[in-house]
């Protein structure tokens, strides 16, 4: 390092000088903080091995995987796996199921935490407010497996709470989980049950940060409570709303595997097979590695494009963006 700096200090060109300054800054930083650079190595290795190496492995999507030859020795097949996927009759069904499910989740699940936060913000009794927050936040800690277990116990065809209740009211039992048409509603509303309280926290924090003089002004102008919410609260938390919306829209194609997979059964598969569950079943259960990688890569790329696009739109129209 020192030799390099010495050499660069002798040269007169301005570009070289700038580069010299940069590398000497680096050298100084290395010399001074060598312990920190050592500390950073294990976590960096983690990211390289478990996050970046898999990105290299994704070339599998353009190959025909052969166990004996390994990833790098397997023959290239170009876009064959992608073509196979696009021509597959299941393709449009997967896209439709994925978009419908996350679209439904977005439409129903996005406004509810906002409404919950706005309502909680109106409550003057601190104890009631804290109690509601405590209770609605709690289901967030329930694991996906337990959540789906609860859903299944409540909706079980014979002994489930809902069906017992319906029988008491003189209605016939329904096998909710066996009906493809019920799948999305079950998924979305149980998700809202589980996360609305958690998601409301971020809006409550934003509401707490609104300038109090705005409320004074609204009061002087004789605004009703609803008008105050409409003209002060909502504009005040709009930047937060937009950021959360970007994240949600950007993740439309990345809807989680875990809960969908657990709720799946042969009867509701028509509506419950989404891209990520398909990748799992085709890749790990059927060991069709190359094809599953192609499907997964397609999903990741769409997702990335979507996030960049939504972020760009938000930047253009509202000055709020992730980066």
């Amino acid at each position: 390092m020192n030799v390099e700096i010495a050499v660069e200090q002798q040269t007169g060109a301005s570009i070289k000088r700038r580069r010299g300054r940069l590398s000497s800054a680096a050298a100084r930083s290395f010399a001074k903080h060598w312990q920190l650079y050592l500390v950073v190595i294990p976590p960096l290795l983690y990211f390289i091995i478990f996050k970046y190496y898999p990105m290299l492995n994704a070339v599998l999507a353009f190959k025909d995987y052969n166990v004996i030859k390994g990833i790098w020795g397997s023959p290239w097949v170009g876009m064959k796996n992608f073509k196979l996927f696009f021509d597959n009759p299941i393709f449009w069904n997967l896209i439709k199921n994925t978009i419908y499910l996350s679209g439904y989740l977005l439409l129903a699940g996005f406004p509810i935490p906002i409404a919950l936060a706005l309502m909680l913000n109106e409550v003057r009794s601190n104890r009631f407010k804290r109690f509601v927050q405590l209770v609605t936040f709690a289901p967030y800690f329930i694991s996906t497996v337990v959540m789906v277990s609860i859903i299944m116990l409540f909706l079980a065809p014979r002994l489930g709470f809902i069906n017992v209740l319906m029988n008491h009211l003189g209605l016939d039992s329904i096998n909710f989980l066996g009906m493809p048409s019920m799948f999305r509603s079950i998924y979305v509303w149980s998700d809202i049950w589980q996360t609305a309280g958690y998601s409301a926290v971020i809006y409550l924090a934003a509401l707490a940060g609104i300038d109090p003089t705005l409320y004074e002004a609204a009061k002087v102008d004789g605004a009703s409570r609803f008008q105050k919410i409409w003209h002060v609260d909502l504009p005040g938390i709009l930047p937060t709303i937009i950021i959360v919306l970007i994240l949600n829209v950007g993740n439309v194609m990345a809807i989680g595997f875990e809960k969908v997979y657990l709720l799946q059964n042969p009867l509701n598969l028509v509506n419950s097979e989404i891209i990520s569950t398909y990748v799992y079943s085709i890749g790990l259960l059927n060991a069709n590695y190359s094809f599953a990688t192609a499907v997964g890569l397609f999903n990741s790329v769409i997702n990335l494009v979507l996030l960049v696009l939504v972020n760009g739109l938000a930047k253009r129209f509202s000055n709020n963006s992730l980066w």
Binding site: A25, A26, S29, F30, H33, V40, L44, F47, I49, F50, K51, Y52, Y53, P54, M55, L56, N57, A58, L60, I71, G250, S276, V279, Y280, G283, L284, Y289, A292, T293, G296, L297, N299, S300, N303, L304, L307
Partner: peptide, 26 residues
């Protein structure tokens, strides 16, 4: 030195991943 570059490298893994199978292979 290099903290913003490392930060970018890390944050990128939040929005893009190699996928299930490539990770499984690793």
């Amino acid at each position: 030195f290099g903290r913003s570059a490392i930060m970018m490298i890390i944050t990128f893994t939040m929005i893009f991943s190699g996928g299930l199978i490539p990770t499984y292979m690793v």
